[in-house]
């Protein structure tokens, strides 16, 4: 395994409160914490030495124990459609992916929250790596701040490798850094966290963040969803929807349901009717996704025509539905494909 690129503790990924604690421990003035936050999250300083408004003595003190901890991507693949898949090395020396998706009016980065995944969804390549570790808040935010297109970014989606709500601590801390005034000061309306429906963590997220929520749905029928997503055995879809219904969402927050359309599986009239029934009363949007085939999967992608017919049928039932364009198919854009290849290479 590649050794950790970090030799000291990373400052990047610390909240203002944690930076204040560091300042206190190192006997530095309290305002140093705000200066540090400014250098880390607004100026993206690559080293402590660059932090010129902090005294040399304090910089030296900081450098004894800490380093910034920003880490540039180690590899990039560019699709003919402009999508770029970046490979980052985690602090444990493993590989994670972030996909940059430019569009005419916005640019989205799809970030990872874990190395590998424990959830074992049938359609997901990341699950084939098994679970290899949690990403720290710093490693999550690093995917954004070390991105060459950082200044073009308008939206962040937590839909890369891993289940965000299985790493609640790292994800919540990263959201704080992204949205706080002392951090990147992004609007929560520009950030979406996607989950398969781990209810306790989802509740914590809904109570403590204003970011948007996306739920992986993929079938309205419990028995069918169970075969695609083992989580259904523990946190069933009716319970997930009940939790969402019970939570006051306000007008700003958006709930979306992600729905990968699989050939001959989950796009019948029966599915349309059931989706209309279970989502009745929830102000939401359904995002239909193209399936990016992965090795050894029994699942197939349907034709464009099928997806468009399904969309029309859902809209006829009053469900706001969009089709997410398939992006980056030529660069293994299905999440987990690139890092799995790197993992296999590193294990040879």
């Amino acid at each position: 395994m590649t050794p950790s690129p970090l030799k000291k503790e990373a400052l990047f990924g610390k909240t203002l409160e944690e930076l204040q604690q560091i300042a206190k421990e190192l006997d530095m003035p309290k305002f140093t914490a705000s200066q540090l936050a400014d250098w880390l999250y607004k100026k993206f300083a690559g080293s402590i030495e660059q932090m010129s408004n902090i005294s040399k003595t304090h910089r030296e003190k900081l450098s004894e124990k800490y380093e910034v901890g920003l880490s540039a991507p180690v590899k990039v693949q560019t699709s003919v459609d402009g999508t770029k898949k970046y490979l980052y090395r985690s602090h444990l020396g493993k590989f994670i992916e972030a996909a940059y998706i430019p569009e005419s009016k916005r640019s989205t980065l799809c970030v990872s929250s874990q190395v590998g995944c424990k959830m074992g969804c049938l359609f997901c390549m990341t699950g084939k790596q098994g679970f290899q570790g949690q990403l720290s808040a710093g490693e999550i935010v690093n995917q954004i701040c070390s991105l060459p297109e950082r200044d073009e970014l308008t939206n962040i989606v937590y839909m890369g490798m891993g289940e965000p709500f299985d790493n609640l601590e790292g994800v919540m801390k990263s959201l704080e850094i992204l949205t706080a005034d002392w951090g990147l000061a992004m609007s929560p309306k520009r950030i979406t966290v996607s989950t398969i429906g781990i209810i306790p963590a989802m509740k914590t997220f809904l109570e403590n963040s204003n970011c948007h929520l996306a739920v992986s749905l993929h079938s309205p029928f419990e028995e069918e969803r169970r075969k695609l997503m083992p989580i259904e055995n523990v946190y069933s879809l009716p319970e997930v929807l009940k939790t969402i219904r019970e939570f006051p969402m306000g007008k700003q927050r958006r709930i979306s349901f992600e729905y990968i359309v699989f050939k001959n599986l989950n796009h019948s009239n029966k599915h349309v009717k059931e989706l209309a029934r279970i989502l009745n009363g929830i102000r939401c949007r359904i995002n239909l996704l193209y399936f990016h085939p992965i090795p050894d999967t029994p699942l197939e992608a349907p034709s464009d025509n099928v997806i468009h017919q399904f969309k029309e049928a859902l809209e006829a039932k009053g469900l706001t539905t969009t089709i997410r364009k398939s992006r980056g198919q030529d660069i293994y854009a299905a999440c987990g494909m690139l890092s799995t290849k790197e993992l296999q290479k590193s294990q040879k």
């Binding site: 424990k118 959830m119 074992g120 049938l122 289940e163 299985d166 781990i198 069918e224 169970r226 075969k227 083992p230 989580i231 055995n233 523990v234 029994p298 699942l299």
Partner: peptide, 11 residues
């Protein structure tokens, strides 16, 4: 067939 496979995962 995957419809015959039921899984429980640790998390």
């Amino acid at each position: 067939p995957f419809s015959n496979i039921n899984s429980e995962i640790f998390f």
